[in-house]
């Protein structure tokens, strides 16, 4: 394991301290590092709180700030946060208009957020994201994972919350954005949980993991390494099959790196993915390219497509000022 760390068991704590120091203008670290919160709250605005296992940076703490989240609860690496974190975060940022949790669909996250909601003693609603088409969904199983599409939900619901939208409408909006958003990813090299000290899986030199999750969970199948075009065909193909957007739809394309894949490759994937979307008569009018929802030091990328309407576009374009996303402010 080669990482810029001191103690494998203190990675999260030291990284959060560096993060908080670097962004004192917009955020604060809660007591016991249980949450990251906006420095300045807007009275009467619904409080948006997300969280999840760490190792996906900048998700979620990097999205705390104007136009996105009010607080984020970082769990241990790849481990859902505990209910006390969400309870204390809610206590800190609820200004009376209620709290909306944005939760990625993993059983651990769901259970911990649910327990927090039960114990919080305040109005709480939840949006659960499940954009990963790699997982075959069925009512008998856990269902799809929430992956990179989560940040699109956080951005759009965050923008709507700034306008004073009430909690029930925000929840419907979040559910709707989630329904319009699909993702799928591929891993070229595995990731290593610092405290585990060894890779979560192994891949031969000529193999990749198609449909990988953001915890380095094995995906749909292990296949021989393929070209960016072939990978884009499979990822975008699976997304479009499931999303079934109308011809002529406008979409946002997010090409997301998993942590160890550089921009030169991500932009190349943008080129491949856009060509396929063009071919399917889907117009890409918004782009986001970078390592936004990562899996520690995993190499690979995911593609997310989100169908846009006028409201979605204006919510996406609305000002945002967080550590990881910033425009118009």
């Amino acid at each position: 394991m080669k990482k810029l760390i001191n103690d494998a068991n203190a990675v999260l704590e030291e990284s959060l301290d560096g993060f908080a120091a670097a962004h004192t203008d917009i955020l604060l670290l809660g007591a016991g590092r249980k949450f990251v919160r906006r420095r300045t709250l807007k009275q009467g605005k619904v409080a948006l709180i997300s969280g999840g296992g760490s190792g996906h940076e900048p998700l979620h703490a990097g999205y705390v700030g104007l136009g996105m989240l009010d607080a984020a609860c970082p769990g241990q690496v790849f481990t859902s946060p505990t209910p006390d974190q969400m309870i204390e975060a809610a206590e800190a940022v609820d200004t009376g208009a209620g709290v909306l949790f944005i939760v990625k669909n993993y059983e651990g996250d769901l259970m911990n957020f649910t327990m927090a909601a039960e114990m919080a003693g305040r109005e709480v609603a939840s949006v659960v994201t499940n954009d990963d088409v790699a997982v075959e969904s069925s009512t008998y199983t856990t269902g799809r994972r929430g992956v990179a599409g989560t940040l699109i939900v956080e951005k759009m619901v965050g923008a709507a919350a700034e306008t004073g939208m009430p909690i029930a409408a925000l929840k419907s909006l979040g559910d709707e954005v989630n329904r319009r958003t699909r993702s799928m990813g591929v891993a070229l090299l595995p990731c290593t949980v610092p405290a585990a000290g060894r890779p979560n899986f192994t891949l031969a030199d000529n193999e990749m993991e198609m449909g990988v999750g953001i915890h380095g969970e094995p995906g749909r199948r292990r296949v021989p390494l393929a070209s960016a075009d072939a990978i884009a065909e499979e990822l975008v193909g699976a997304i479009l099959k499931d999303l079934a957007p109308k011809q002529g739809s406008e979409v946002l394309l997010l090409v997301n790196g998993f942590g160890a894949t550089p921009m030169i490759e991500l932009y190349l994937m943008v080129n491949s993915a856009k060509r396929i979307l063009d071919g399917a008569a889907i117009t890409t009018t918004r782009f986001l390219t970078g390592s936004y929802v990562t899996a520690l030091d995993m190499a690979g990328a995911s593609v997310t497509v989100s169908v846009l309407d006028a409201q979605a576009k204006s919510l996406w374009d609305a000002p945002v000022h967080t550590a990881a996303l910033r425009w118009g402010a």
Binding site: G53, Q76, T79, S80, P83, Y106, G108, M111, N112, M115
Partner: peptide, 12 residues
């Protein structure tokens, strides 16, 4: 355990 474990196993 609920407040320290996290993940799926903590709540369960």
């Amino acid at each position: 355990l609920v407040m320290k474990v996290g993940g799926a196993s903590g709540p369960l």
